[in-house]
Amino acid sequence: MNVFRLSGDVSHLLAILILLMKIWKTRSCAGISGKSQILFALVYTTRYLDLFTSFISPYNTAMKVFFIASSYATIYLIYLKFKATYDRNHDTFRMEFLVLPVLVLAFVVNHDFTPLEILWTFSIYLESVAILPQLFMVSKTGQAETITSHYLFALGMYRALYIVNWVYRYYFEGFYDLIAIIAGVVQTVLYCDFFYLYVTKVLKGKQLTLPA
């Protein structure tokens, strides 16, 4: 464990807590893409299957349990509890356009052709594009609530910090995993447009609006 990965995990945790707080406090999931949350639940479910087979540390186990539980809790809030506030008309990104190519890629490009490894690879690839429905929804509505932009910023920073962690581990531990690194770079690049808007607008107290 290093400070970059720890701060990445903290940023990830913060993003999830911000999202849950936003939905719970405002009793509304307006502006939140349920499809991205479904993809995240799929990402954690397929990645953390080793929860039962390999124990790394109490921290590792606790975080995996939390990520899985919170992703399903978010789906429950969006599609059941506050479904009246779910903006179905703007959450129209076709998930199958993401899941299917990622599934094929996981079978073609992986480190080991075993079920657990293919599921892990699928999860890594899927996570890199899972935010697209959410970013698409923000661009479609042309704006996002400030709290939602904080959620997106924390979520985007998590994987950006992981990239620094991978550089660190490459030089100090001789560790690298090209699949995770390339997917992580793609994932972070997808946020760049949003990062720019967040820094130039939200941090100056303005509303996050996109040129629709």
Binding site: R5, D9, H12, R47, D50, S54, I56, N60, M63, K64, F67, H111, W120, Y162, N165, Y170, G174, F175, Y176, D177, L178, A180
Partner: peptide
């Protein structure tokens, strides 16, 4: 350089 088989990252 080795690639860690155990996924110790989240």
């Amino acid at each position: 350089l080795r690639r860690s088989a155990v996924k110790d990252e989240l």
